[in-house]
Design a protein around this nucleic acid. Structure first.
Lengths: 142, 142
DNA sequence: CTTGACCTTCCAGCTACTGGACGCCGTACG
DNA sequence: CGTACGGCGTCCAGTAGCTGGAAGGTCAAG
């Protein structure tokens, strides 16, 4: 039976609880986003609930658009006992602007593509060139 | 002087005319998006106006969200004398759905991030956890 | 004792490029 | 005629954030 032994969990369970791939967890460790955990005598990584929290925090930050190196820095600040909130605000503000730009660019491409599909019949009789579907639109470089 | 000699242009001019990096042109050749061009006796690549058209077509397709391997396939169809339009429509339709999804996901993240920034003062006195800024919001996985 | 799931390490690949090292080519200038 | 300089050649490595495979160790169940 599986008692609630508190020598923690293995990488698979950690990964499952946080909703990520075990390989990703090792990758995070490699690049310093997660610290090197304790090992069993056999060499297996052992994790605690706190590690789940940390990993969930990482994913949450990613969902909000932060880069892994920024998240690493935030976690490092915590490690030093400092509150990273000011830093987070800075990064987040910057990121917000970037995301807005990317969304705008994607919407532009999207609309062009939609127009293209709406206004062109899939005909084979385009004359010359590569493909009228692509060529007959104007380039509106962004 | 530079007469209008029609033994073509070198990679730098091709790249400039199409608005890309010369390194990128070599990369496209490597992965088979552009064919291997003729060379001068010294080994320099020589390009024609048709190559400019082709390269511009590639960039245009990319702007519309097509992947390089799809573009390669489209160009290969052309090479075989076939009209790739039906294929393009298929790809484009699929891509459109993907782009819509990505935009939706990004807007979701964006709005969360904006809320976060609007509703939180950059205080250092968050109690416990990593950063209230990130943790006090709900995860709305998309 | 074997099976099978899980774990370990290392290495390679994905997308679409970009940049550096190092050396040759070609032209302009003195 | 030599030299300086920019462009070009190849090859290799790196970017972000993983993912997958190979080759082997561990552990519990049957």
């Amino acid at each position: 039976m599986e008692a609630g032994q508190d020598d923690g969990m293995r990488i698979g369970e950690l990964a499952e609880q946080a909703g990520v791939n075990p390989t990703t967890v090792r990758y995070y460790e490699d690049i310093g986003v997660l610290p090197e955990p304790d090992r069993t005598t056999a060499g297996y990584r052992r994790y605690s609930d706190a590690d789940v929290d940390r990993l969930v925090f990482v994913r949450r930050s990613q969902q909000l658009g932060l880069h892994l190196d920024e998240i690493r820095e935030i976690l490092a600040l915590r490690e030093q006992g400092r509150r990273p909130c000011r830093f987070v605000v800075e990064v987040a503000t910057h990121r917000l602007a970037e995301i807005d730009q990317r969304i705008a660019a994607m919407r532009c491409a999207r609309d062009e593509l939609a127009d293209l599909l709406a206004n062109t019949e899939p005909l084979d009789d385009d004359a010359g060139g590569y493909c009228q579907l692509i060529e007959h639109t104007q380039t509106s470089d962004g």
